[in-house]
């Protein structure tokens, strides 16, 4: 099912959770809503589910206004951050709940319900737990039961709120891969909320980066990572070395010395130069006005990092970049820095 959010606004007292958000999700897509806490991503998810209503704007399912249907009638599967399993029901009854809640004329006969629940428990590989209560399960097991329960109603959309947030790192990685595989098996349109960029970039087909109730960028993981469109996305996704510069007369300047950097399209004023740690080359100090001293080299093998003090007026700005294997660098050496690839955005006031 296609989901379309058109200019959605939502305020809680003085706090603007969503400030005009528009988004299109294609049928069968797996989309991540990525942002820091307070960015409005969970509110957006709850609005799609029908648990919250936008003050302005619209949610459309397959082109039709979804606000005409209540949360109950939307047929969405929702996995809560803390799973919200029914604590007084067994795993089996939890998964069967949605099937038993159907109006009588649509309800399956008891054997069909049994078959279906068992198939779902097989799918999440937890059939052996069907007589347990939620409090007897581990976090990862609860997560998968919550997913099976949501899938039982054959949802047209699957919404997941921080699906891996409450799990430890190892289980988290396993479940991530498992969810991705599941999505390939059962291509239900899915949206999940996360504050973890690795999770979003690894699992999703498309990533929606949000901040302060607005969408900063929408794109595939590659686009968002390699081609960040805003200063926020640049800082939030992946690691970046940030060098403050000044744009004057359409030239980038580092302490009034011109930098060989393309700043076309930028207005005069302060700006930030964003460079990935592996995109910064160490060159001879004669080739660039960016002068620095190597402070320390840490790590071994492929992940060697160099801490570099960029001479910045009276003070130093310490940056961390990938240390090149050759030529070998020495601690204390005076070097020049030259970005091979970079992005420039005006500095926020």
């Amino acid at each position: 099912m296609n989901i379309e959010v058109v200019n959605a606004w939502k305020r809680f007292n003085d706090f603007t959770a969503l400030g005009g958000v528009s988004l299109q999700i294609k049928s069968g897509e797996l989309v991540a809503l990525l942002g820091p806490s307070g960015s409005g991503k969970t509110t957006l998810l709850r609005i799609i589910a029908g648990l919250e209503f936008p003050e302005r704007g619209e949610v459309r399912f397959d082109g039709r206004d979804a606000s005409l249907r209540s949360a109950r009638e939307r047929n969405v599967g929702f996995v809560f951050q803390h799973y919200a399993l029914f604590r007084h029901m067994t795993v089996f009854e939890n998964v069967a709940f949605g099937l038993r809640a159907r109006p009588r004329h649509l309800r399956l006969p008891e054997e069909a319900i049994h078959d279906k629940v068992n198939r779902l428990l097989d799918l999440v590989q937890l059939k052996w737990l069907s007589d347990r209560y939620p409090s007897q399960l581990s976090g990862g097991q609860r997560q998968r039961i919550a997913l099976a329960r949501a899938l039982a109603i054959e949802p047209r959309v699957l919404l997941l709120d921080e699906p891996f947030g409450a799990l430890d790192a190892k289980v988290r990685k396993e479940l991530r891969r498992w969810l991705r595989n599941l999505h390939e098996e059962l291509p239900v349109t899915s949206v999940f909320v996360t504050h973890d960029q690795d999770e979003a970039l690894e699992v999703a087909d498309r990533v929606v980066v949000m901040d302060k109730g607005r969408i900063e960028q929408i794109g595939t993981p590659e686009e968002v990572y390699n081609n960040p469109q805003t200063s926020f996305v640049n800082e939030f996704i992946g690691e970046s070395v940030v060098v403050p510069i000044v744009v004057k007369d359409r030239l980038a300047r580092w302490h009034s010395m011109p930098l060989p950097i393309d700043v076309s399209g930028l207005r005069d004023g302060k700006a930030n130069l964003f460079v990935r740690p592996y995109e910064m080359s160490i060159v001879s100090p004669d080739e660039t006005p960016l002068h620095a001293t190597i402070k320390r080299v840490r790590g071994l093998g492929a992940s060697r990092r160099a801490e570099i003090a960029l001479h910045y007026g009276e003070t130093d700005l310490v940056l961390e970049i990938d240390a090149p294997r050759a030529p070998a660098i020495e601690v204390g050496a005076f070097v020049g820095l030259k970005p091979r690839n970079y992005r420039v955005f005006p500095a926020l006031a």
Binding site: L51, R72, F78, H82, A84, F86, H88, A101
Partner: peptide
Amino acid sequence: TQEEEAAILLGASGLRTFWRITLPN
């Protein structure tokens, strides 16, 4: 309220949610 929300999203009516989720809890 999450369990109630979960029940509603699974298609349960308000009354069913009360009898099956809220009250047993």
